[in-house]
Amino acid sequence: MVDKISEQDIVNDKEFKSTTSKRNTIAVVLSIVELLLFFGFIALVAYNKPYLGKTISPTSDTTIGIPIAIGVIIISIILGGIYAYWANTSYDQSIKRIIEKMEVE
């Protein structure tokens, strides 16, 4: 991309500011969700082992703790996937659009 407009113009642009701050908000919110997910699990391990030790059904020996642990892994992968997909498509395109628009003006 040729720098037809100055970097300062981009940085001061209102739409650019709101788009990047939206990205930052999403990143922080997702991080908090991930932290709650993991430390919630650790809190169960630390304070409520009996709950994790319940079996998933009366006829099964599998404890609730196992699907919960595997669930934390799978949800973490999904959260990452959602962010990477959103940032690489929607967010990157918005930024590109903002700069193209400024270049036309």
Partner: peptide, 15 residues
């Protein structure tokens, strides 16, 4: 606990 703990840092790195 280790397998979960060693994975959950990755989304934080990403975000």
């Amino acid at each position: 606990l280790y397998s979960v703990g060693w994975l959950v840092g990755w989304p934080i790195i990403l975000f």
